[in-house]
Write a protein that binds this DNA or RNA. Structure first.
Lengths: 213, 213
DNA sequence: TGTACATCAGTGAACGCGCGTTCACTGATGTAC
DNA sequence: TGTACATCAGTGAACGCGCGTTCACTGATGTAC
């Protein structure tokens, strides 16, 4: 057992932190979770990481750059969660599709800090193309799923995949942002958001002529 | 023409502002529009209104109280816009329903400051019940519209109105927040958000067995 | 119609605070030979 | 394997700034009689 290999998360080695970049991001997530994306400061993140207020500048150009990094990581985690839920459409596209919606809501609920950094931080996406790119990858999972669903329809009744994907995204996102988010801005409703979304998706798919009655 | 009656908006009478409360709200809207709900300060609102930094305390307990008032007014305007679009379901519930969706998107696009104060300011709704109440009234318009649509269905195929209203709200809100908002957080898509929403609503209604093919 | 007075809605100076950022610096780490 | 040196990733003190909030105050307005 040596000092160097066995320190836990957040422990300090001495003069050099060793993992400051990660520690700052972790601190940012905690602060955003508690106070929203507005109530997070560079200085406080430094303090939480146990480091002088000048240290973060070795890793991030400024406050926005840190938030952008958080948003990017959020989208990476989001993409993983969605892809895991979709699981290439197994066992059936329809079942997998419903899992996908559930995963969207679960992410908003369990990772409110990521969620608000990704969607409500006010970052200009054009200033941070790498964030946008990760967001596009997450959307790609959704679109892929829509394409698989569409493929089960006869050729003359297939809707444009982009349109369908944007519909499903809007529906899921609206529900997540209004009723499923994991912070105090959640609006209470007398039912489970997962079931609400599932019902909406069923009706929508029915409207497309899929599954059903 | 007297000095007292003819001053324009924002003009000062002298020692007493005469309309400070309104001026502060107007200033807050401008600041939120430019910098988001986080980038708005009590002090700057006072400056914009041409008044000392202590003056706002005569009208608002603190910064949050001002934002809450902005959100409340936003919901009032929103309710009016939705009710106007719905127009009691004239000439037909279906046509009016589509106008309603358009009005939702138009509000997000034309009033981004209200929109973000209402939905993204991080206010705890339970701390400001009057904001929640106004939000509920806006939702009431949507629900009323859904009930009118549902009434056109045979009795044995009517979905629960609350469920349908929450579906439509989620769909509209997601689209507004992602693709139709009037600020820099809007995500560009290669089609008009209004048409995208209209298509989604048609498919959804079709799934309910309304209108159609 | 005047006058005295209460109330209202501002002023402006002051406070303590935390933030973002910079600077010259220094301890720790990595590498060339 | 040592040693010299370059580079990296921190320190800590300092700065100017704007914020929120308070305070005793005062000018303007409204009202009772």
């Amino acid at each position: 057992m040596t000092w160097h290999k066995d320190r836990g998360p957040g422990a300090r080695r001495g003069y050099h932190h060793g993992n400051l970049r990660e520690a700052l991001i972790e601190a940012a997530l905690n602060l955003i979770r508690e106070k929203g994306p507005g109530g997070f400061t560079f200085a406080e993140a430094a303090r939480a990481a146990g480091v002088s207020p000048a240290a973060p500048y070795r890793h991030f150009r400024d406050r926005d750059a840190l938030i952008a990094d958080v948003a990017k990581r959020g989208f990476e985690a989001f993409t993983r969660a969605l892809a895991l839920a979709w699981d290439s459409g197994r066992p059936t596209p329809l079942k997998a599709f419903n899992r996908l919606g559930g995963a969207y809501l679960a992410f908003a609920s369990q990772e409110p800090a990521y969620f608000s950094a990704m969607f409500e931080s006010g970052l200009s996406l054009s200033d941070y193309p790498e964030v946008q790119a990760e967001g596009d990858r997450a959307f790609g999972v959704l679109r892929e799923a829509c394409e698989a669903i569409i493929a089960t329809l006869p050729k003359d009744r297939r809707p444009p995949p982009l349109m369908m994907a944007l519909h499903i995204w809007s529906l899921s996102h609206g529900m997540a942002a209004l009723f499923a988010r994991g912070d105090q801005a959640r609006r209470p409703i007398p039912m489970r958001a997962e079931e609400l979304l599932e019902a909406a998706v069923l009706i929508y798919l029915d409207g497309l002529g899929i599954g059903g009655r």
